[in-house]
Design a protein around this nucleic acid. Structure first.
Length: 418
RNA sequence: GGUGGGUUGGCAGAGUGGUCGAAUGCACUGGUCUUGAAAACCAGAGUACCUACAAAGGUACCGGAGGUUCGAAUCCUCCACCCACCGCCA
């Protein structure tokens, strides 16, 4: 959601922003509805003022008839206003966030810009396997039975891959705690308000599973960003000096509606996966430096696993509606011979805060909307894919990254016999 | 799932049809007093929207959505949430 006054005063900026963000909403339509709305509101307000004035004390019997017709007139105008406001709001909520000036303009993923690469791509003395091949051979992933029970894009993880996920969770949680983030376990089913407030509705509604359709609709989260952002909805936070920093762990569900046929082998892209996510509420002055800090934290995490990666500044055609700017971290996958997305670091500025009603008291005493940021700490599935492929050995085993061994009973590798 | 009780401003808590945007207390802000502070006293202070250059004025908001009425925090309907007890249960 954008600031209404900003839209009125800068319609051209919004038009340009819509253009580079591939949003087809006509700003002039919004302004027209806005003008109609304001005119009606004024009219209704003054009629109601007259009615209130007359009704303050007991009106005479002969006056009541005219007051009654005045009341009916107001009701009619209010119905008209409601329909205008519905249309107006429908358009408003489709507007994407204002893009930060450092974001490259582009149509799709080809417009993303690599801003950093880290680590040396490993050389193998043998043809490196893809993770699903390793998973099959070491009996770590069961795709077939996953499909039998739940359909395509579901699987079972088995044996040491399960232990590796638990190790990663422990390690990543400790890592974030040490950085001063508050640990959270969150609800996985949320109401519509939370989905709308974080900006997943209406933009990405087709990505979200809906359940409980007979009663109040509930939605399965696609990321713990949703319950973390909504945690403080309708609150005034104390972030004038220090940001509020959380990390959450949850299972995540995605319909992968537009991804037919993509990444069908292995566990790169499924309907269900686990993830640790960081989420920060801060004031408007700090958000851009915090955005950079959050990226650095995620980089540190990948560096500690010693997996090569690159950082992308995502272009206007490839970022989500709530994002003002987004970095992706792509980890190197030797089996595929390419970098694949493993983390995503966004500054949503005040976009979510406006929808969720989250403010802070500024130093001048005025209440302002907070800025919100989110970043992946560790998407378990893809992190394990990266570990499997980067740490594979000539004998077909997988070495366990040093930092994780303490959580793996001190063992140094995953092999078939385990 | 059943029964009962609740939901009012930052918090506590009055208010069952007519100056109620809402008593009172606490907390908060400014002032007086004081060397300073406390206490005491005085004053102020909610959110959103509309009109206006501004000063200011108006409208809405007492969990949410509808309804009755000239007029609703107060009456009616539906819904959500919270609390207590019972049942079931990881």
């Amino acid at each position: 959601m954008l600031d209404l006054n900003f839209i009125r005063q800068n319609p051209d900026k919004i038009k340009t922003n819509n253009q580079i963000r591939k949003c087809e909403v006509d700003v002039d339509d919004i302004l027209k509805l806005d003008a109609a709305r304001r005119e009606l509101v004024s009219k209704i307000d003054s009629l109601r003022a007259a009615l209130n004035q007359k009704s303050k004390s007991k009106p005479e019997a002969k006056e009541i008839a005219s007051l009654k017709s005045l009341g009916e007139k107001i009701k009619k105008l209010e119905a008209k206003l409601k329909s205008i406001e519905d249309d107006w709001r429908d358009l408003l909520i489709q507007l994407p966030n204002i893009t930060h000036s450092s974001v490259p303009v582009g149509q799709d993923e080809t417009g993303n810009v690599v801003v950093k690469t880290w680590g040396k791509v490993p050389k193998f003395t043998f043809p490196p396997q893809e993770h699903w091949q390793l998973g099959e051979r070491l009996d770590l992933i069961d795709m077939e039975r996953g499909a039998k029970v739940s359909g395509a894009r579901f699987w079972y993880l088995k044996n040491d891959l399960v232990m590796l996920e638990f190790a990663l969770i422990q390690y990543a949680a400790q890592f974030m705690r040490d950085k001063g983030f508050i640990p959270m376990l969150v609800p996985i089913l949320v109401r519509e308000r939370a989905m709308f407030g974080t900006g997943f509705f209406p933009a990405d509604e087709n990505e979200i599973y809906q359940v409980n359709s007979e009663e109040e609709k509930m939605y399965l989260i696609g990321t713990s960003e949703v319950p973390l952002a909504s945690y403080h909805m309708d609150e005034v936070l104390d972030v004038a000096d220090e940001p509020l920093k959380y990390f959450g762990f949850s299972t995540c569900f995605r319909r992968e509606a537009g991804a037919a046929g993509k990444d069908m082998r292995g566990i790169i892209r499924g309907h269900q996966f686990d993830k640790l996510e960081m989420f920060v509420f801060c004031n408007e002055t700090d958000s851009w430096s915090i955005h950079e800090e959050m990226l650095k934290i995620a980089e540190k995490f990948w560096q500690s696993l010693k997996i090569p990666y690159q950082v992308l500044n995502m272009c206007t055609g490839d970022i989500g509606a709530p994002n003002a700017k987004k970095y992706d971290i792509e980890g190197w996958l030797p089996g595929q011979g390419k970098y694949r997305e493993v983390a995503s670091c966004s500054n949503d500025t005040d976009f979510q805060a406006r929808r969720l009603g989250i403010k802070y008291a500024g130093k001048d005493g005025n209440k302002k909307f907070v800025h919100t940021l989110n970043n992946t700490v560790c998407a378990l599935g893809r992190t394990m894919v990266a570990i499997m492929e980067n740490y594979q050995q000539p004998d077909g085993s997988i070495e366990i990254p040093k930092v994780l061994r303490v959580w793996m009973g001190g063992r140094s590798k995953i092999s078939k016999s385990a």
